[in-house]
Amino acid sequence: MSDTTDMIKSPRTPARWLPYAGAALALCLAVLALVAMTTSRADATTPGADSADAGFARDMAVHHQQAVELSFVVRDRTDDEEVRRLAYDVINTQANQRGMLLGRLDAWGLPKTSQKSPMAWMNHEMDYKPHDGSLMPGMATDTEMDKLRTAKDKDAEVLYLQLLTAHHQGGIDMAQGAADLAEDPTVVRLAEGMVRGQQSEMTLMADMLADRGASARQ
């Protein structure tokens, strides 16, 4: 009797586990789907090292650093309050923006330097050739920086305004490229803000140069 009972019960034993096995399988599939979805989202929202977002963040951080340096130099070369006030604004604005750009690279886990040529991320041929410390369009050369360091008063003011005007024009072109190509919303907003802010300062500097009997370099 017991043998018969065992033979009857034995085939049914695995069936008791089927609901649990099915639930476990469903749970595993759900976990795998969640992992895949999370990975997909991370890939979609984190720019790659060669992306326009990362390239712009790296290049504009370098570009901004020189504008800050120019502004610190002129503050020591003139007592003119209007020029010193502009320099103060540039130092604060661009140092803050530079920090935000480097912060994005940190958040993405990407390097702050690249072996690629500056502005390669803009995906078009660059006629500009780096020279004498000027790595990107608009950047002052080492020779021009040295000249500013030795100039005084009106000469320093005019040279600073001319160098910064050219610097802003190069910065605007780069920022507009990022506004068009970048995908990270924070980077796009930052780039658009740079375009507006530097265009406004270029208008101001044109007036300041005219007041000093000078104009922007062609």
Rank of each mutant, 00 (worst) to 15 (best):
L209N: 06
V31P: 09
M126E: 00
L181D: 02
T45M: 01
V68Q: 06
A216M: 05
A26C: 07
Y160C: 00
G99R: 12
D211C: 08
A107V: 05
T39S: 08
M205P: 09
A210G: 11
Q199S: 10
V73H: 06
W121A: 15
T93R: 06
R217Q: 09
L135E: 08
L32H: 10
A216D: 02
L190K: 11
M145S: 02
R58G: 05
T46M: 05
G48H: 00
Q162A: 00
L181W: 04
G109S: 01
P47W: 12
D80P: 06
A95K: 13
R212A: 04
V188W: 00
D155M: 00
I172C: 10
L209K: 09
G22A: 13
E144N: 05
N92V: 11
A15P: 01
W121S: 13
M208T: 04
E81R: 11
L32D: 11
M37L: 13
M1G: 15
M208V: 03
M37G: 09
R58E: 07
L163T: 08
L161G: 02
P11W: 04
Q66K: 13
A166L: 04
A140T: 15
G22L: 15
D89N: 00
S40G: 14
T46Q: 02
L32R: 15
Y160M: 06
G177T: 06
A210V: 13
L86N: 01
A120R: 07
E201L: 09
D153N: 05
H124P: 01
L34H: 07
K112E: 08
I91C: 03
R196D: 01
D89K: 04
P118Q: 11
A42T: 14
Y128H: 06
S40E: 05
P185N: 10
W17K: 08
A140E: 09
D184W: 01
T150F: 00
D153F: 04
